[in-house]
């Protein structure tokens, strides 16, 4: 409820002090640190993501850029049990933007650094039910996950935006965003990197 309230508040403000609403489409990828079937380090699949955000003019050319996004997690698995599972992630990013070059590199291009905090909410949903699994020399009944489980993780963000002019009926500018996230920055054992690459349209 608090999150929804703040988001609504932010987007209402964005209507009154508009700089640039942006829509992005791209891929999110966790750092490869899981085991594959042959024991080597497996690369996490690229999961598609979309996000919507707004850049607020703040001060000295800086901007505050809250975003809400969605990741459709793709999972590599050799499962033959089948089953109806679903993993998806929603995220909120609270980034500050800074143009270290003070002005555009050229009239049509600018590069902006971004850093801030983020919240990832990973949701794992299962339809429940039982399966028979091998257990020692016999078999036993085991259970598929049932219901939904939501896990929240804090990230530390660092990235760069490239923005390019593009005159069309709908899009004022387009850009490329590269951003990296440090999951669980305060826990040494759980610390993990993730990366995001997206095409961005500014309206």
């Amino acid at each position: 409820m608090i999150r929804n309230g703040i988001l609504i508040f932010l987007f209402v403000i964005s209507l009154t002090k508009s700089y640039g609403t942006h829509f992005s489409l791209g891929y999110h990828k966790m750092d490869p640190n899981v085991q594959s079937q042959d024991g080597s380090e497996a690369s996490d699949p690229y999961s598609p993501t979309i996000s919507l955000g707004h850049n607020f003019n703040a001060f000295w050319g800086m901007q505050f850029s809250p975003q809400i996004g969605y990741i459709k997690n793709k999972v590599n698995s050799g499962d033959s049990y089948g089953g109806d599972y679903k993993i998806e992630t929603y995220y909120l990013l609270y980034d500050l933007l800074w143009n270290p070059f003070e002005s555009s590199v050229s009239d049509s291009t600018e590069w902006v650094l971004r850093t801030g905090l983020g919240t990832y909410q990973k949701s794992i949903k299962g339809s429940g039910g039982t399966v028979t699994v091998p257990n020692g020399t016999s078999t036993t009944t085991a259970y598929r996950p049932s219901g939904s489980s939501k896990s929240y993780t804090t990230t530390l963000n660092l990235g760069i935006d490239g923005r390019f002019n593009y005159n069309s009926q709908y899009i004022k500018k387009w850009g490329l965003r590269l951003e990296s996230f440090l999951y669980s920055p305060f826990q040494k054992q759980k610390r993990t990197f993730a990366y995001l690459i997206t095409l961005v349209g500014y309206f």
Binding site: R3, K150, S151, Y152, T154, F186
Partner: peptide, 15 residues
């Protein structure tokens, strides 16, 4: 799962 903190705004930071 990590529990949410500050209504989910700060995720589970694990402090």
């Amino acid at each position: 799962p990590n529990e949410k903190e500050l209504g989910g705004l700060l995720g589970g930071c694990g402090l």
